[in-house]
Structures are given as structure tokens and as C-alpha cells.
Design a protein around this nucleic acid. Sequence first.
DNA 1: GAATTCATGTAACTTGTTACATGATTTA
DNA 2: TAAATCATGTAACAAGTTACATGAATTC
Lengths: 188, 188
Amino acid sequence: MSLRAAILGFLHIEPMSGYLLRKRFEGSAGSFWSVTQSQIYRELHTLERDELIVGIREAGDGKPDRIVYSLARRGEAELEAWLEAPVEPARMRHPLLLKLVFAAEVEPQVLDDILARYGEEVATTRADYASRLTMEAIFALARSEREATLWRLSIEHGLAWCDAELGWVEKARRELAPQRRPPDRDPR
Amino acid sequence: MSLRAAILGFLHIEPMSGYLLRKRFEGSAGSFWSVTQSQIYRELHTLERDELIVGIREAGDGKPDRIVYSLARRGEAELEAWLEAPVEPARMRHPLLLKLVFAAEVEPQVLDDILARYGEEVATTRADYASRLTMEAIFALARSEREATLWRLSIEHGLAWCDAELGWVEKARRELAPQRRPPDRDPR
DNA sequence: GAATTCATGTAACTTGTTACATGATTTA
DNA sequence: TAAATCATGTAACAAGTTACATGAATTC
């Protein structure tokens, strides 16, 4: 349902092809709603069948033809309804936590490595979000102050999430820390 | 893959039926890895076909028969490998954020209601996690201090996530706040 | 010369969701 | 007396993933 609505949302901003839709997803919603190319094309087909959008084939010279979709009246209506409806709860799939539940007998050092590696990945993601906040390219597309604010808030959500993860990882590592001998000192 | 491994993990703790597996999921991993009953039974069938687990039918008098599954050697091996492997990144589906991306023209008051309602739901979830931390029933099942620590950490992750959400919601509401007249005062 | 971008699509598969069905026993 | 619990399962569907295929143009 949300994918459907999101496509309508993008097409409301401007008509575009499946290819561009995918780019837009990656660029603006990728962190909280990932999609694959196959999903997009499939959904576009059903949206067109249901007459929520209309596609017009444009000849690309050299490049392949592309089909540019725009919202039909019924699409507008469905988008509006979705926008004002209450949201479903966020759900996540967190393989690390699942692993922890069963990890009591894993070597402490191995577990610590897993946690450390996960932390590094989150830190990388965090840096990526942080750099987005300063990218004018993103906010240049916004058509109003309010839209820019909304987009910024969605990136800041990503930052807050990363910070929470990093804090938790540190705590977990401290509490699960493998007993480590203090570093050897010259016996003198 | 993770569902498969998690089932192996539960069966490693003790042999049990599909029904109980589901209970265990809800009780200990539900917040970061939800599953439905159909998924579990399907996975159990393929795990048995692949000879990672073995099911033994037990007659229930009055109650329906149940099939109690336990780990086979190959299942043990796969579980161990999974436990030591690095984790895949967490991914989430966050319908609220998706909505925000397209919500520039939604009435501020409507948007604020959506945010407020979301915040309430998160607060409820948070309270639920907090109460779990004090439930002895959960930790009584743990077979070691370390296991109890791991389980506690997974609950604390949920708390940290809720806190991050709540903080972000407050910030978002402040920045998107609908202009509200100050409350009427008796003109005197 | 190799990889990436543009732009579409199909096919096969896995995972996740919803709804239905059985039937005794216990709890509200 | 209605519902929830115990315990299994099937069927149909929706959503998500992976891999493949085309072919010119551009970038490394």
C-alpha cells in the first residue's frame, strides 16, 4: 500500500519514468523505504491498469524509449486520502538483535567483533546522512520552505536512529566485553 | 534466512512445537522480528525436508496432536555458522517518514494530529518494553547470567529506539507546528 | 577496453499477510 | 454463552529479491 502511495506522491511532484522513480526513491526515501526496480515496474503496471496513472511513451533517440507516467484524477484522490490517514506503525527487521537472543554460547570475542563491525557500518551510514543535510542538490528540489523542512526532518530521523544505535552498541559491548588481560608491562 | 536460523535457535534451547515457537517469537523477538503462524509452519516443513530438524508427533488427549521438533546434527551446524557470521544491516519500513516526504500540502493541523497519534503509539510500546524489564518470567527462562544480559540488552534496544522516536516526534511537531492563536482571555 | 548510465522489461523465487477450517477445553 | 487457548494446517495472495536480457552512449 505504501509503495503504491509513494509512487503517486512522486508523480504528483512531477511526471516521470520508472527509472527516475527508482532514483528518487534511493535519493530521498531509501533509508526508510527501500524498493527494487522490479517492484516499481510491477506497481506501475497495476497502477495504470487501475487507471490511477497514465503512461505516455516517449521516443528516446539513441537511448531506449521511456514511458513517462503522470497522475490521473483517481490517482490524485487516492494520494490525498493516504496523506491524511493515520500511519501504520514502523516495523523493522534487525538481524543483530535476533542473533543476540541466541548468542549466549558464542565466544565473547567473536560476539564483540560482530558488534564492533555493526557499529562501524552504522557510523558510515550516519556520516552519509550528515552529509546529506548539507547537500543543496537535495533541497533545491523542494518547492517550498515547508517541504524542505519535511525532508530535513526525515534525514534527521535517520541521524537520530543512528545515534541511538551507536549508543546502544557501546553499552552492549561494555556489558558483554570479553575479559581482556591488561596489556603486558615490562616486569621490572 | 534469519527466520530459518531463529527457529533453529529456539529449538536449540529446547525442542518444541510450531505453536510454542510462535509464542516464543512474540515473547522475545516480536519487536524486531515479527512472524506469522503460516510462516512458521511453512518453514518447519522445509527445515524438516532439508533434514535440519526432526519432528515427532505426540498424541494430545483432548487437545490436538502436536509435532515436537528438535535439532538434527545439520541443524546444529547451520545454527553455529549463522551465529558467528556477521549480521546483515537492519532495515526498516517507516510509513510515517514516507508520508512526510509528500506531505507539504497537507493541512498543518492534520499533520500534527498524525504525528501526535504516532507519538502516543510509541509511548505505549515504550511502556510495554519498560515493564518487560521487570518481568521475572522472562529472565527465569534464561540459562545463564550471560543469556539474561543478552535478553535484557535486546529489550533495552527497544527502549532506546522508542526514546529516539519520541525525541524526534517532539522536534518535528515543534518545527511543523500549526500556528495556533493563544487561548482566549476574558477581555477585561 | 571496461565499467557505468540510461531505460526498459521478464521469470523465478522467497518471504510475508490474510483468511479460513477443525474441535475439545478452559476462562470470562 | 461467548471468547480465548491449545495446535494444527491449507490456500490464495501481496510484497520483496535476484538474476537475466537488451543496446547505445558515456565515463574511467
